[in-house]
Design a protein around this nucleic acid. Structure first.
Lengths: 195, 195
DNA sequence: GTCTATACCTTGATAGAC
DNA sequence: GTCTATCAAGGTATAGAC
C-alpha cells in the first residue's frame, strides 16, 4: 500500500538533470553526428518522452548551442595547453597548436563538424568562447609578425589547419599519407610568415 | 476536333529533356543550396509530377552526382585558364589559381559546398573529373618543389585555399577584411615552399 | 514517359491532462 | 515536470492506369 502510494507520488516528478541532458546530447553528437540528434532519439536514451525535453530548453537550436559551446571550450583548453608547453618560441607554439588542433578535430570529428562546418555561429558576430579559443594563436602570431599583422596571420594559419582537417574529414584527401602535407605546409607557412 | 485529338495524342509524351533537367537542378542548387533540391520542388519547376523524374535517373544521389560533376568541370576550366595566363612562373601560377579558386567558390558557394563540404565523393576513391581539376596545380608545384614533394605541396596549398574559403562561406571569418589574410597566407606559403 | 495516388518514413513542436 | 496524443511539414520512392 505504502509503496504504491509512493510510486504514485513519484510519478511526474523530476527525472531529467540539465547537465546530464547536455552531456547526453554531446555524447550522441560525438558518436553519431549532428543529424543523429533528434528530440525523439535523445528522449529515448534518457528514458523520457520527447515533449518533456522542451521543459529544459526553448528549442533544438538552443540545445545545439550548448553542445557546441562545450566542445569549443574543450578545444580551447587543449590549444592553450599546447601553446604553453612550447613557449617562448612563437614558431614552435604555432606548430604545436596546429598539431593539437588537427588531432582534436580528427578525434572529435562530429563535434568539429558542428563547430566549424555548419551554419554560421548563432549569435550576432561574437561567439562567447570563441575569443578564448583564438587567444593563444593571436598571441603567438603577434610575437612572430607583430601586432599589426597578427590577425591576418592568425587567419592564414587557421585557414590552413582548418582546410586540411576538413578535407581529411570529408574524405577528399585520402590518397598518400596526409600528415606529410600537413607538417610540410604548416612549417612552410610559419617560415614564410616569420620574415 | 483535330485540335482536341492532337492534344490527346500529345498527352503522356515526352516533356523532359535530360540536359534541361540537370541544368535546372544545377540552377536550383546554385541559387538555394542542396537542401532546396527535392524531387517535389524540382518537378514543380519543370511542370511535371515528382514521380516522373525517376524515369531519368535512378535516385536522387545520381542526380546530385551529375550536378557535382558539372560544377567540378567548370572549376577545372577556370583553374586551367588562370594557370595558363601566369605561365611559366610556378609561383605566379599557384597564386593565380588560388585567387581564381577562391573567387569561383565564393561566387558559386552552394555548388562548392556540394563539391567539397559534404559527404565523401560517391565513387570509390577516384572521381572522374577530379584529376583534371588538380592537374594544373600539381604541374605548378612540381615545378616549384620537385616531383617528389609535388603531391604534399599541392595538398598544403589546396588545404589553405579550401580552408579560407570554407571559413568565409560558413561565416566564421567575417571580422576584418578577409582578403588580407588570404593573400598574405598564400604568398607566405608559396614562399615557404619554394626553397 | 507522364499521370494519379499513395505508402512510408522522418522531423520539430504544441495542447492539455495529471 | 512528465505524460499522451497530435499537428503540420517535409522527404524518397513505388504501383498501376493511360
Amino acid at each position: 500500500m505504502y509503496k504504491k502510494c509512493t510510486l504514485l507520488v513519484m510519478a511526474y516528478t523530476k527525472k531529467i538533470d540539465h547537465q546530464e541532458l547536455v552531456a547526453c546530447a554531446c555524447k550522441l553528437v560525438e558518436q553519431e553526428g549532428v543529424e543523429a540528434l533528434s528530440m525523439r532519439r535523445l528522449a529515448q536514451i534518457l528514458d523520457v518522452q520527447a515533449s518533456s525535453l522542451y521543459n529544459h530548453f526553448a528549442d533544438k537550436s538552443a540545445l545545439l548551442a550548448e553542445v557546441a559551446e562545450r566542445g569549443l571550450y574543450r578545444l580551447a583548453e587543449k590549444l592553450e595547453h599546447a601553446s604553453a608547453l612550447a613557449r617562448p618560441n612563437p614558431r614552435h607554439q604555432i606548430e604545436a597548436m596546429g598539431l593539437t588542433y588537427r588531432e582534436w578535430a580528427l578525434q572529435h570529428s562530429h563535434i568539429y563538424t558542428l563547430l566549424f562546418m555548419g551554419a554560421p555561429p548563432l549569435e550576432g558576430d561574437a561567439p562567447p568562447s570563441a575569443a578564448a579559443t583564438f587567444a593563444p594563436m593571436l598571441a603567438a602570431t603577434a610575437q612572430l609578425v607583430g601586432e599589426d599583422q597578427a590577425e591576418a596571420a592568425t587567419q592564414a594559419v587557421w585557414a590552413f589547419i582548418h582546410g586540411f582537417v576538413t578535407l581529411e574529414l570529408t574524405g577528399h584527401m585520402q590518397r598518400c599519407l596526409p600528415a606529410e602535407g600537413f607538417t610540410l605546409g604548416l612549417t612552410c607557412l610559419v617560415q614564410g610568415l616569420g620574415r
